[in-house]
Write a protein that binds this DNA or RNA. Sequence first.
DNA 1: CTGAAAGCGCTAACAA
DNA 2: TTGTTAGCGCTTTCAG
Lengths: 329, 329
Amino acid sequence: MATIRDVAKRAGVSVATVSRVLNQNGYVNEETEKRVRQAMKELNYKPSEVARALFKKTSKTVGLIVPDITNPFFPELVRAVEDVMNIYDYTVILCNSDEKVEKEREYIEVLKQKYVDGVILTTNQLTPDEVDEWDVPIVVLDRPFHERYPSVVADNYGGARLATRHLYEMGCRRIAHIQGPMHVVNAVERFRGYQDEMMELGIWEQRLVIQGNYQLKQAKEAVMAALTDHEIDGIFAGNDAMAVGALKAVQQCGLRVPDDIAIIGYDGIPLTEMTTPELSTVSQPIYEMGAIAARILIKQIEGKPLEKIHYQLPVQLMVRQSTSRREQT
Amino acid sequence: MATIRDVAKRAGVSVATVSRVLNQNGYVNEETEKRVRQAMKELNYKPSEVARALFKKTSKTVGLIVPDITNPFFPELVRAVEDVMNIYDYTVILCNSDEKVEKEREYIEVLKQKYVDGVILTTNQLTPDEVDEWDVPIVVLDRPFHERYPSVVADNYGGARLATRHLYEMGCRRIAHIQGPMHVVNAVERFRGYQDEMMELGIWEQRLVIQGNYQLKQAKEAVMAALTDHEIDGIFAGNDAMAVGALKAVQQCGLRVPDDIAIIGYDGIPLTEMTTPELSTVSQPIYEMGAIAARILIKQIEGKPLEKIHYQLPVQLMVRQSTSRREQT
DNA sequence: CTGAAAGCGCTAACAA
DNA sequence: TTGTTAGCGCTTTCAG
């Protein structure tokens, strides 16, 4: 690997001059510049980002902490972040936290040691006070966190109401909800949306609420159990994986979807179009969320003002086969 | 952020001494060591990985280049790599190449500028000669590349034979194959396995081969077209996404799976258990592949000898509903 | 056993 | 317009 000294020597100039053309700052003679560029090309010179980082305390690298890339909600989010970071010449370090605060903390430590310029965070358990101490630009993604941190989330509450109302309009009256884990803010908001809508419709019943943990399997079993207890004619699942679980449970019980029980999920991951019947869902603009998060992180890093600090993106009701039946009310 | 100088000052020793306890090399008095550790703790000192990297030309970071994290085959692979890298205190930079050589090249350039210690690569188009020039430890993952590079792949050829044979044993005689893109080595091997098995069974017909590109949608359309042409009683799809496409096409044509047409996929991604009927598939040990790749990369980095340079892992036939019908022959 | 000093590759004053 | 110098935070000889 050629260093800046090699280039300087070859071009017959000082190291400082090379640095100047590299960073396009300071004045440099056109002729000289040409020679320098020539030398850089000949030696195939690429500046060491590490040396730069040491001096500037900035590394053109950001951290991205997600619970688990294996959860089908995240790949698209990650992809979006990577895509826009890439455009701005940032590189992204991927961290899977498994929702463990401990792991989040460890990652942050490591990331700071590497002088990352910022981090995008999907978390619940961290307290704002702790994050304050980190002293790194942060953007919070997917889950509402605290006012003073820029955030990009979708309208969970509204989406949940939308889904519930949709089932109602499809003729359902005994609409169950499979909750996500209650320590995830998202899940709570979706539950609240469901609850409020049900109350407003005058069909709220506590026992229609089914505990879930965002996992297919557990949801399937829970629905299985619920089905024997009392008749249900619609299910609003807190996420798509659980909706698939519900679908399987219902089918396994010999009931038909949507005729006996209509099902709607939440998130809008590609999976929902792969089942039979295809699943209705509340689709979040996943890619856009990631992309916006990346952009505002960059703005923060570059010290540019954010015209807006909290983004709440609209969700969209995707009506598919799993809720298409009876007449609308 | 406290620096090593701060620690040295506080402990009343030289910077060199602190460095010695940090790296556990050289001799250092027990008493002194205690004082130094104390000081480190008090100041919450964490060494700058960047400064270290500059000196050592090694950054405790590796690159991971995959085509597209959004492709459901990769999240688990990525997760595995991240997990084991994490254990050994490495950090991973995720790169999506979209199968574009250009992007791969760019990423490598950037990664080298950051002094990554190695990279794990999923690629087709690069030539070994080019990779030679990179001068970075490499491990090739998921797709056979070139002898002189350590690799971790699954037995594509064998798996394809297995799948084909399985359909045959389930009574299928007109077994179609939806190919993956022929510029992906994987897909070619699977095709060859299918072809050889079909020939051996004496039921090979060129027109049973359907062009696919690993995408659900395209596969669905292609199968749709193929179904009208000639009767088919079994489909071996080059990957799981295409198997879902086939499933949808078949169902949409009013045919039953597996009774009219049996379908088997390839890869063993979670998706296959979410469809109805659940899809038979040839399951690759995805997590293990990623984990092994990570481990041998680390060995290479640390200059340890590899007891084995090429890993070909066995695949497993997962028989599920989509191929469970008639009697075995 | 410990300290002083040089240097990893780059940037940013400060002079010239 | 350019060169000289110091230094980012760490590690490693080389003396002591």
